[in-house]
Structures are given as structure tokens and as C-alpha cells.
Simulated assay, not measured.
Amino acid sequence: MRILAAMSGGVDSAVAAARAVEAGHDVVGVHLALSRAGGTLRTGSRGCCTIEDAMDARRAADRLGIPFYVWDFSERFRDDVIDDFVAEYRAGRTPNPCMRCNEKIKFAALLERALELGFDAVCTGHYALLVDGPEGRELHRASDAAKDQSYVLGVLTAEQLAHTYFPLGTTPSKALVRAEAAERGLSVAQKPDSHDICFIPDGDTRGWLADKVGAAAGDIVDRSGAVVGAHEGAHAYTVGQRRGLSLGVPAPDGKPRFVLEVRPVSNTVVVGPREALATARIAGERFTWAGRAPASESFACQVQIRAHAEPVDADARIEDGVITVEPAVPFDGVAPGQTAVLYEGTRVIGQFTIDTTTSAVPAPV
């Protein structure tokens, strides 16, 4: 196959490209320039897609003896990932930019260009398995549960899965990938993994959002609507947050209170007891299937609401264009804007963006 290897400059994508070459494929490496800030530098494990990452990717490609290019996707990344991130926070939701990047950049914009240029597939260093089943290609969890990335790949469609290549999916551990990189003479063998949001490399999400969204003071209220404090910008609060609330009125029972909801229209933050974070139902209109769709509009599944959360048994149903999921055990602190990925065992069924949540503990009347 002709394979376009997306090389981030990290150890995973470098080893993935190496395995593609070793398997006999015709491989070309490409690094995506996602920032217009030409002087962007990496700080330890923070950030990605920096100058250092581009140079590391080029060195890896040279070591493998494959052609290498840098493609400027910064405008598309700004429109589809950064602007979406800001818009979601303005709407009081908590988005996952890694999901949007996979959906809109790596497996949409990049794959589209790859196919136009005659490539058969895009190769990445994600830890996930592709299985060719009787009804088409399926996406499954990786062999290494600790590194499994099927959650952030849940946005991929059947057409995208058909042109995807994940060489690391069967690798038992990240330590083996690093050891292999060292054996292959790849300089990124011990490079730290990237953490946090790549376009906020200093990790100060609150400050970054304040600059983009603006900070307007407002009230913090309890579930009855009584004012119990004040905030300097609702964007700085997320569902489940406990610290930094600066409440002027203590709870009647003296127990800590947590953020339950962010209301951007009224610029208020709602707080309440820990038990009110239990979520009995989630629903959303924006859903896709990773391969074959469920045979029925009502089906049993397992649901994962964060990249490293434990999956929860649940019942799902689709009605009037809305998917609703009710877990067997309530979720803990779910925020609108998060992504729910549905599984059947190890297979990814699909995903949806959570629009509404229903607490398992009704608000006092």
C-alpha cells in the first residue's frame, strides 16, 4: 500500500512509520504545522506540533529513509479546533479538542488530501486495533489498556476507518515501543509524551480563555437560585470543580459544594452537594457510527465519557434524531460538550457530543 505516515515528532508516530516501512509499504512522512506562531517552542511535556517536534519528525524520517514533508494545516486547525473550542466554552460547554482534531484534521483534512494524492491509507501512532469484520472494518480497543486511545478515535466513520492504519494497536506496552525506537536508532526514544492542550502549551487554560472569551463578573448560585458567591468569568468553571469557588455563604450542612452547571446566558455558575453530580441520563443530537450502525434504535452498550474513565453498562435509544443513554450506575460529574463513546465489548460502536444531562438527585423544590 501507499501510506502517508502522520509524524508528530513523538516516539509513537515514529515507530508506527518504521513498522509501516518494515511491512513493505511505500511510505511518505508528513508533519502537520498547526500553529502560525513560527517561534513556538516545546516546554518539557507541554505542547506539540512545535519547531522541535517538526525537527524530530524530520530526523526520524531521515533515519527511516523515507520522503518527508511539512504541510501547513494551521488555518484549518484554527477554524475547526481552536475556534470550536472557544465557541463551546462561550456556550457553557466543556469540549474535547483532541476529539475535534482527530475528527476534523487528522482523519478528515489530512486523509482527504492523502486520498487525492493517491495514497491508500493514513498511518498514525494511535493505540487502537482495526479488525476487518463480516460487515466492514471495526475499531477496537488496543491490547495495552493503559495506552488505549480508542476513545479519542470514536469520531471516525466507516469510510475513514477503511483508509486508516494503526501499527501500534497490538503492542503490549509503551515501554516496548520506546525500546524498539532505541533499537532502530530513533532519537525520540525517550522523548516525553505530550500532555494538556497543544495550543495552550503553558497549561493556563483559564488565562487563555479569559483572553479569548473575555471575563465578565456574575453570580454563583445554589440549586434553589440563592446567590452564594461571585465569579469573575463563568468560562473558568467546569462541572465537578470544587476548588477556587470563593463562596461567601456556606452550605447549610457545612459540606463542600461543587460546580453542577454553567449557564452562559445568565452568566451564572450553579453549585451544590457532591451527590448532585451523579448523572442518570445523557443525550445529544450530534452522533456518528464507527463502522456498522446498531441494528435497532434501542440497544445495550458500554459508555465511556472520558479518555481514561471506566466504561459503564448502559441502555441507549435513538428517537427523533436524539440519542439518549441511561447508565446502569450513574455517571460522575458529566458536563455538556463532553464526548460519550459507545462500546460493544472492545468494539467502538460510535460517539456523540453530550448536549444535556439529567442529575440522579432532583433539585429541591
Rank of each mutant, 00 (worst) to 15 (best):
A179T: 13
A189K: 07
M1G: 12
T357A: 13
P273R: 15
S173F: 09
R141E: 14
P192F: 02
L342Y: 07
T50I: 06
F85I: 06
L139E: 03
L4K: 01
Y69W: 04
V365M: 07
C101W: 03
M55T: 00
V262D: 06
S194E: 01
H31W: 00
R242S: 02
V329I: 11
A61R: 04
P311S: 11
T353V: 15
G169A: 09
L176V: 03
A6N: 11
E180P: 09
E138Y: 08
R63K: 14
R286F: 09
A189H: 15
V265H: 05
G24Y: 08
R242G: 14
D222A: 12
F77E: 04
I349V: 15
E285V: 00
A307D: 03
A146M: 12
F73M: 12
I3F: 01
T288W: 11
A360S: 12
W71A: 14
R206P: 00
A290N: 07
I354Q: 10
P327G: 06
F258L: 06
G29T: 00
P311K: 11
V21T: 07
R76S: 12
H235R: 04
D62L: 04
A146Y: 10
I220E: 07
E159C: 04
T171K: 02
G214L: 09
G321L: 04
I51G: 01
A216G: 00
I3T: 13
D12C: 03
S187Q: 13
A189G: 06
A314K: 10
F258E: 01
R141N: 12
L41T: 13
R141C: 14
G169V: 10
H31I: 00
E285Q: 13
N267Q: 11
G136A: 12
V177G: 06
T356Y: 07
I105F: 05
T279M: 08
E88Q: 15
S266D: 12
S296A: 15
T50E: 05
V27H: 06
A145S: 15
R93K: 15
F331T: 08
L4E: 08
S45Q: 12
R19P: 09
E112T: 03
G39A: 07
T157H: 05
G39F: 03
S13C: 09
A182P: 11
G29I: 00
P67Q: 00
D320I: 01
V270G: 08
R263T: 09
D56H: 12
F299C: 12
D355F: 08
L156Y: 10
T356K: 13
S35P: 10
G248N: 10
R178L: 03
V265C: 00
I305E: 05
G154K: 05
I66M: 03
I323W: 08
A363L: 11
S173E: 10
A87F: 04
S194W: 04
A57P: 02
A307G: 13
Y165A: 01
G248A: 14
S143T: 15
L161S: 09
A162S: 14
V249Y: 06
